[in-house]
Design a protein around this nucleic acid. Structure first.
Lengths: 176, 176
DNA sequence: CGAGGCATGTAATACGTTACATGATTTC
DNA sequence: GAAATCATGTAACGTATTACATGCCTCG
């Protein structure tokens, strides 16, 4: 139920776990990371912040400023940290989109090493599946039209790069 | 206005331009390509198909089968091809998500060489921007926590791979 | 004999974007 | 002096997912 909403909610909570900040700050941070995960509009960000507050996962402090609208600084609570930890420790859903993987990757780096490794290994399995599926498709169209092959070739290039990164990163984490 | 919906609509139309098929066939095809673009549910696919038909961009033929529900085969019309061509020839929106790029890449391979090159060059500019943004973020956090650097490193690895693919593919297309 | 694929479709619900509202300050 | 950034928020609207409804066939 509502996996996207839930993960975005927790992702925002995770950003607040690193550092207390205002909604505007969250937006700015998200924008700088927007390439692979996108950046939600204020229309969904502010209500999310209000929900987290209402559920006791954050607290909010109004910081007034002279002749400017006051900033509202959100901080994570103990309850919030617990909920976040539980979420990060959960195994990823089987066919999670790239976006979900990256969001968890950003947060997982704050938590247990074992969880991080599990997360990467889970992703490795998925990427391997995708590679196989892409190669299957490639073998079917290869001979007909080179132009049609472009998109598959692109996807394979990305998948191979991701696989290489996962392998080398897992190596480094396991050696430690 | 509703760029996502519009592009998905046209993307389906583009798949029908390659080959006439049923809604179920479209779903299967989308699933095989689902890695980078996702695969919509029937709840949005069937209404989209109905819309395209209603707007005269496709025709539909009911193919009955003994003791099975009949299949509904959709084919693109001349009007549909025109609309599709116009859409493909449009320059990509400035900050289009990866998904939109891939959808257009899949379709662009069916159309003009010049349009395809323009599409790739447009994307090249965007990826270069992203690389710069990621490196800016990387330089800010580098020294503090190596674990936090992971997600940035991941994104950079993907961006670099995409850049390499774009360069080599553009080379090939321009030589011809 | 149950699970999953084939094949279509609708309705309720949840989600997200766009547009609106307000207003000072900084940058070109 | 216009445009962008800072800073918050709500309401209308569009879009998508999930769940429901139906039913046969095939593979293990």
């Amino acid at each position: 139920m509502a996996a996207n909403h839930v993960s975005f909610r927790y992702f925002v909570l995770g950003l607040l776990a690193r550092q207390s900040m205002s909604g505007y700050d969250v937006k700015r941070l998200l924008k700088s990371l927007s390439w692979l995960i996108g950046s939600p509009s204020f229309g969904s960000l502010y209500p999310t912040l209000h929900d987290l507050l209402k559920d006791g996962l954050t607290t909010m402090e109004v910081v007034p400023r002279e002749s400017k609208p006051p900033r509202k600084i959100y901080s994570i609570t103990q309850a919030g940290r617990q909920v976040l930890q539980d979420w990060v420790d959960q195994p990823a859903t089987p066919n999670a989109p790239l976006k979900a993987f990256v969001m968890r990757l950003i947060l997982a780096s704050n938590f247990s090493n074992a969880g991080l490794i599990a997360h990467l290994e889970q992703r490795r399995l998925q990427v391997a599946d995708h590679q196989a599926a892409l190669e299957r498709v490639a073998s079917e169209i290869d001979e007909t039209d080179l132009r049609q092959y472009l998109a598959i070739d692109y996807a394979l290039a990305i998948a191979n790069a991701e696989m290489a990164w996962l392998d080398s990163t897992l190596d480094q984490l396991l050696v430690q």
